[in-house]
Design a protein around this nucleic acid. Structure first.
Lengths: 292, 292
DNA sequence: GAGTAAGATTCAGAGAAACTAAATTATTGA
DNA sequence: TCAATAATTTAGTTTCTCTGAATCTTACTC
């Protein structure tokens, strides 16, 4: 009893030896299969036998075979080796990013237009990846990222530097001005009034700056975070708007631009927390999001 | 890929550490539970993490906890530890003789009379013991023992020394002479004719020697290996016989002895193969058979 | 039978792994 | 700031495990 205070400290290596000798005709062959010398195999199996505490092998002529009672141990060995193989596969998938969890947050334009197909095909290529998508305005996304509720964000680049995050440029998106039917034509001084994103919105900041440069007044009569709502407001004649081309001109009845050149560019960036431990699953998704 | 040519060489010890830290609030407590220092636990888990190749732990304040993704590894660890515990129990049973296989051969008198209760209670005390009983004449039993078809034999001691077997005296059984009704009474010279065991029987040898010493002729008119058959032959008046008391005088109508003192003693011995590897299950049964 | 080859084990030594004890770092709370 | 707690790092020792060489045993061949 004193020689087995706890559990026998078997190693996967030893169990592998056991499985190998059961499968191979000779020990030399088994040794070759697991890639060690016959000597190592002998010693390893002797150690296994010692730790189990029950005789497992016997010599028949110049072969040594398993004793019948070793069948129990062999079955155990097979189970553990198989499970360890599964574990190794799982670990490999985790290491390469083929499996894992990524909590992705994007603004609507990215999820619906720019990277919709990218996300879809990445998900298809990695069926074991647990991908959770949150769609929200840029500010909310960055807050969630900093708190640790998200792993990866695609949003409009914030105007102020933010501590603790790394950003990579993903794409630059032109913002065009759109007017209700029949209202276009005058100089910028006569444009408006406007329907646009709420105060605090990153995109609104870009729009305000662009209009100011052109000398257009920026009187806001309605707000929404949803570009399709803003588009319908323009169509209803409530006011003018500056919108991403992809969202203003999508659908059966696209709005018409007030002028050919954009009012401004909004920079969409891929963002991660600086301090976060490296995670191949996040890396992989970030890469495809950047490269498109 | 080059760092994992085969399988990660995890040890049961490491998996035990993993299970312990999952169950205990702190690492120090886990270390105490498995009976090592906190340092050993730290190093062992670091090694496990390195071999799996996936980060498993993270520090929260001054505690280090399992990361969520370690759940897979923990499940694996629990399975393997549990199975190893089962294996250890099985091995312990084998070591002590509580489990295993014993192929026992005995002559009929032993199985039916002298050691019937011994075998029954031994079997009851060791439910996991696979006990196989063969009943045959002594000669057959010893042949089977030498060939390896039996592990343990209880039979009449052979008159000649036999190479390769170890015998221990179990009990000495008196053999008495019995005559058909009304035939008893005369001097030994007038005894007979006889019904007895076949030529070659160990018991027949003992009987022949005993009768010769008394001066009785040994004319044989019928033979059988079965004592109950011999007893019935006596009852039918076919001849006299010399039988073990236990078999001649059992049942509702016991035979009557010709004289009070036995004709001879047959020595029943417990026999094992000399070269056989030690087997606690066989040892255990041999012990109770000898001591009765 | 001697000679030889195959299968396996034993031995000695080198390198890796794992443990303990002590020193160190980091965090929490008074 | 001080002390206590949790864990890790470091240094040194012991234990494992492997390779390569030598040995032992068994089977086969001439």
């Amino acid at each position: 009893m004193a020689d087995t205070p706890t559990l026998p400290n078997l190693t996967v290596q030893q169990l592998e030896y056991m499985v190998a000798v059961a499968a191979a005709p000779t020990r030399a062959a088994a040794a070759a299969r697991v890639g060690v010398t016959a000597s190592a195999l002998t010693q390893g199996l002797a150690e296994l036998e010692r730790r189990v505490g029950v005789p497992l092998f016997e010599r028949h002529g110049r072969l040594t075979r398993l004793r019948p009672q070793a069948a129990e141990v062999l079955a155990h060995a097979r189970r553990v080796v198989a499970e360890t193989r599964d574990l190794a596969r799982w670990a490999e998938a985790r290491r390469t990013g083929a499996a894992g969890t990524v909590r992705l947050g994007t603004i609507d334009a990215v999820a619906i237009h720019h990277r919709a197909e990218t996300v879809r095909s990445h998900r298809r290529a990695h069926p074991d990846l647990d991908l959770r998508l949150t769609v929200a305005p840029s500010g909310s996304l960055l807050d969630a990222l900093q708190v640790g509720d998200l792993d990866l964000v695609v949003c409009v680049e914030p105007s102020d530097f933010i501590e603790g995050i790394d950003t990579i440029l993903c794409l630059e998106e032109p913002l065009h001005a759109y007017a209700p039917d029949g209202a276009a034509g005058g100089p910028p001084e006569e444009w408006g009034p406007w329907v646009t994103y709420p105060t605090g919105s990153h995109t609104r900041g870009v729009i305000a700056a662009g209009l100011t440069v052109l000398g257009a007044p920026f009187e806001v009569v309605a707000e929404s975070n949803q570009p399709d709502v803003l588009r319908e407001m323009v169509r209803l004649g409530m006011g003018w708007s500056v919108l991403p081309e992809a969202q203003a001109e999508a659908g059966p009845e696209p709005l018409a631009r007030v002028r050919r050149r954009p009012i401004g560019l909004r920079r969409l960036v891929v963002v991660r927390r600086s301090g976060a431990p490296p995670d191949p699953a996040v890396d992989g998704l970030a890469n495809v999001l950047v490269s498109g």
